[in-house]
Write a protein that binds this DNA or RNA. Structure first.
Lengths: 300, 300
DNA sequence: TAAAAATACTCCATAGGTATTTTAT
DNA sequence: ATAAAATACCTATGGAGTATTTTTA
């Protein structure tokens, strides 16, 4: 029967592409690792590594097997985490991914409360675009990701915790003072500045306006919402921002005004994304509740 | 380090709820199994089974751990299948699930070709409703399922291979002879007979007509498309059937006519559903190609 | 008290180590 | 010639068996 040790050794060889170095990494002799790999290949009836005295290559089938070995390890890690997560929730570290158009607005609102409720909880945050985070969740490199939906997450599961609309942001000189709502028809598209392609915020904003993403990248494309707002302040155009960003972007009676985009909503849904087999769901559920509670308190 | 043997033994205990019987099932002594379980629980820092001399119960955490152990086994099975699937495709048996409104129409069109191309291939078919098949795919009880989309398959992956529209089926006495198309507005809803709730075909048909599924189960609700057609032949009403069912339902210049439902389509998409980590994708891709090819040849 | 799990104790299979050989550049 | 993987051979750990004890319904 195949053993976890064999898989462990094979994964070490994949990393180092060198039997001796892999053996060292596993704290066993080259001989022990070598025989384990040979036995594994015999049991599987295939060669994983093509090797001679100068180099080790991975066969195509071998790569499939190694990838699967990684998920076996991942599931086993999950198994070992179950009792910890149940018995001492929030005692183990957790890594969450978040996209740039959520992180800076959501986290300051919710993390203080998380820290207050669970002072010992080590939460690591990484910020990447949706497609990167989806891959990392799939590979088990992070525990979960906070994304804006709709977004294709085939094979993963989502837990929605917030829905919000977009607001049209403009310089007060360019905005009728009585205006409380605006429809996409009333928007001057040519003045609208959105983020670069790749940011899902652009897609969601366009979808909210029932527009195709067919216009060329314009000179106004910008790297972050903060920058966009600065450009709005400089009367270079207007933009659309999600509700949760409003309080940070339009502070202290600035020159900038925001009015609700009056199109059928919600315009984007914020959700936690996990692998279907992820085990620390009880902790994530608690986090999710804190998120919703804090957003309701601070966004309305 | 946790071993697969331990998990195997624990799963045997879950099945039998009896250490001696579990030991027998694993062909080891009660002592060996007992110590393995004790060691596993020690390593995990939790009790999986609450046991005395009269009964064995599973703790709630234990159940989570056992479920995870099943997926570990499932992934490991997948790993062992990789080389076989690659080196001798179609040499291992495969079980496919299919829903009742696809199976009887799709399979006769495609299985002969599958059998011709891979005479040694053992393919087992089971017929269940979508929600049952989705569960079975999730649990690894079947290799894949053939469903009609849209349908919620969170955590699974779909490979579309066919799209089709619905046709309005009526007795020729009740159908204008020149009629080639019909819109949902022109349908006499009260004469329309659909399958019972639970069959996704009903939902898809209603969606194609932009109708809500709010009407009560009527007396006309029927168990299979074939029965429905018999009722149409008996002038008891009309119905909607998917394209792939037409040739079997309306045979040899019968009393029945079918006209295309002229609403934005496609009205349903046929897809293969698998777990995200399923390994025999190369074989499924081949099957999928055969399916599309045969449907194109026999449905148009 | 009786049925069933835990434990004591023994044994052997096998994983792992050291030393050596084989192999291919 | 040499670097690196495979093999030979030995050792020791731990998994498994038998027999026995403990537990509690």
């Amino acid at each position: 029967m195949i053993s976890l040790k064999q898989l462990h050794y094979a994964l070490a060889v994949e990393k180092t592409l060198h039997f001796k170095k892999a053996a060292d990494a596993c704290h066993v002799s080259q001989s022990a690792l070598s025989t384990a790999i040979i036995e594994l290949e015999k049991q599987l009836g295939t060669t994983i590594f093509e090797r001679n005295n100068k180099q080790v290559l991975i066969t195509s089938q071998g790569q499939l097997i190694l990838n699967k070995a990684k998920t076996v390890k991942l599931e086993l890690d999950g198994l070992m985490q179950i009792s910890q997560s149940d018995n001492q929730p929030f005692s183990n570290a957790m890594t969450l991914g978040v996209i740039p158009t959520i992180g800076p607005y959501l986290l300051p609102k919710v993390l203080p409360e998380v820290r207050k409720r669970f002072p010992e909880f080590k939460m690591k945050i990484i910020e990447e675009q949706s497609h990167v985070l989806v891959d990392m969740v799939r590979n088990g490199e992070i525990d979960a990701a906070i994304l804006a939906l709709p977004y294709p997450i085939e094979g993963l599961m989502s837990f929605d915790f917030w829905q919000e609309d977009f607001y049209w942001v403009s310089h007060k000189d360019e905005c009728p003072s009585q205006l409380k709502e605006i429809t996409s028809e009333e928007l001057e598209i040519e003045k609208l500045m959105l983020l670069k392609d790749g940011h899902c915020l652009k897609d969601h904003a366009l979808a909210a306006c029932s527009l195709q993403n067919d216009k060329q990248d314009s000179d106004f494309d910008s790297a972050s919402l903060h920058t966009l707002i600065q450009m709005v302040a400089g009367k270079l155009g207007t933009t659309l921002v999600p509700q949760m960003a409003l309080d940070q972007l339009i502070y202290n009676e600035s020159e900038i005004r925001a009015v609700h985009l009056n199109e059928p909503g919600p315009h984007r849904t914020i959700a936690l994304i996990i692998r279907p087999n992820y085990v620390r769901t009880n902790e994530l559920t608690t986090l999710k509740e804190i998120f919703t509670e804090q957003l309701n308190a601070k966004c309305c």
